[in-house]
Design a protein around this nucleic acid. Sequence first.
DNA 1: TTGTTGACCGATATCGTAATTTGGTCATTT
DNA 2: AAATGACCAAATTACGATATCGGTCAACAA
Lengths: 191, 191
Amino acid sequence: MDRRQEILQGATKSFSMFGYKATTMEQVAKLANVGKGTIYNFFTNKEELLQEVVISMIRDMKAEAEQTLSPNASFIENAHNGLMKMLQFREQHLLFAKLIEEEKAIQTPAVKQMLVKIEEEIVTFLADRLRIGIEKKEVRPCNPNLVAYLLLKSYLAMIVDWQLTHEEALHEQEILELFKETIFRGIATAP
Amino acid sequence: MDRRQEILQGATKSFSMFGYKATTMEQVAKLANVGKGTIYNFFTNKEELLQEVVISMIRDMKAEAEQTLSPNASFIENAHNGLMKMLQFREQHLLFAKLIEEEKAIQTPAVKQMLVKIEEEIVTFLADRLRIGIEKKEVRPCNPNLVAYLLLKSYLAMIVDWQLTHEEALHEQEILELFKETIFRGIATAP
DNA sequence: TTGTTGACCGATATCGTAATTTGGTCATTT
DNA sequence: AAATGACCAAATTACGATATCGGTCAACAA
C-alpha cells in the first residue's frame, strides 16, 4: 500500500473534521496507520502537509468539473452542469468550508495562504472557461478574471454565508435557478 | 437638555472610538455628563444601548441612500448608486467600521447580532426596490430577497474582499460596468 | 414624589505561572 | 533503507489570584 497516499487521506480526513490547528500530527499518523516519524519522510512539516492536501483537493475538483464539461454543449448548459456538479458535491467541500471557518475565527497564516491559493486556482479555471465561451461567441465580451471572481464569490455566498444568517440552507434548485436568472443570463449572448 | 439624547451621543462616540467591548458604562456616563445609574433609567442594559445606537445609524444610512435615488433614473442606476452609498457608509461611519473590525478580531455576540441586523436592513431595502422594479416591468419576475442577497454579497466581494488578495482596489466605474454586464443585465427586462 | 447618583456586589475578564500538549528530531529497530 | 516512538524545546492551555465591569439600590437632591 502507498504510505504517502495513506497519510494524505488521513490528513484530509482530520483537517476536514477538526481544521488545521486542531489537527495533530499524531492524529494524522493514527488515521494513516503509520508512526509519526514516517510522515516526515514524505512531508517536511505540518504546513506542507496541508499544502499537499489542498493541492490534491484542487486536482480532484478540477477533474470532476472537467468531466461534466462537454465541448458540444452550449456555455449555459456547461455552466449549469458544472455548477450543479459543484452543488451536489457540497460535502466534498467540507475541507474548504472548514478552512474558511477557521480563518474567520482565528487567523492562521498557513490557512490564509491556502485559501488564497484555492481562490486563485478556481478563478483561473473559471476565467479560462469564460475565454473559451467568448471565443465561441457564446459569452459576451467581458473581463474574464473579474467575472470569474464574481462567480466564485457569489457561489460561496449562497453556499457558505447564507447558512450563517438563515435557518436552513438553500436548495440546489434555488441556487441554480438564481444563477440562471441573473449572472448566467447576463453574460450569455442573446439566443 | 435631553438626557436620553446626551447618553446616546456619548455611547455613539465611545462605541465608535473603542468598540463595544472596550466601552464601559462609566465611560459612557462620563461622556454624557450623567451618573452611571442614570443610563439605566433609559436603557435596560449595555446591549440595548448598542441596539439603539445602531438603529439610529441605520436610519441615517437609509436616509442617505434614499437621497441618491431618483424617480427618473433607471432601476440599474438607482440600484448601483444606492448600494454604493450604503457600502461607502462602512468607511465613512466610524461606528460601522469599528463594529466590523471588532467582529473580525473577537466574536462578540451582541456585535455579530447588530451586523446581521444591518445586513438584513440593507437586503430588505434592496428587495423593496426590486419589487418596485418588477411592478414597473423594469425587472424580470424573480425572488427579490434572494436577488437582493446576491447583490449585497457581490458588492461586498468586489469592494471588500477584492482588496484582500489584490494589489489595488477596483474603481467604482469598473464595478458598475461589471454589474451592468452581468447581474443587472440578467435581471433587467429586455429593452 | 420623582429623578439622579456613585458606592457597592457578584460576575466576568485579565494576567502571571504551572502543567500539558504538540511539532519536529533522531537513535534504535525492522 | 525505511519506519518508529521516546524525547525535547516551544507553544498552548489550565488555573488561581487579582482587577475590572455591568448592573443594583440606598441615599440624596430637586
